[in-house]
Amino acid sequence: MSSFVVDKDGIKRYAVTVNVNGSDYTKVIKANTLLVNLLRDDLDLTGTKRGCELGDCGCCTVMLDGNPVNACLVLAIDCDGREITTIEGIQDGEDLDIVQEKFIEHAGFQCGFCTPGMIVSSRALLNENPSPTEYEVREAIAGNLCRCTGYVNIVAAVLDAAENL
């Protein structure tokens, strides 16, 4: 169990350590803090978006120990000691990941709000399945809603990225 202090209202505040994009961060949070808020408010990683906040739109998608999850439905305290990859951790230094490059090449985004989650879902798919079928791509991103693109260029970008891994 994480260590905690009790604030003047009697609420426990826990010291939680998460590894985000390769670095450990220790933050003092309440148990009701959601992962999405830890990332955005405490770590200033605002690439992870807040959209529907109910697990339907996918714009807060991050990898938790490699698996894409909705950060709006995960308690930050449940992530103590675990590894998180956000959109900010997809690129390697100044080099964009192939998925990012292909999203740009195919214009697989417009307003960009779903894009971080979309890219995280796509990258997680390719990590597990480097040569997905079109159906598998669509299935992997079916939890990421995009109102702008009709998914047409997104699907093309992910398939193209798979061919160029």
């Binding site: 990683l45 690439g47 964009l96 090449e105």
Partner: peptide
């Protein structure tokens, strides 16, 4: 010409800011 969008880097890396991201 199908040039790349000018906001490509920000929107694919999570660095693009939206109003709710402001502090």
């Amino acid at each position: 010409k199908s040039v790349d969008r000018n906001d490509s880097y920000g929107k694919t890396t999570g660095h693009a800011q939206y109003t709710a991201d402001l502090k």
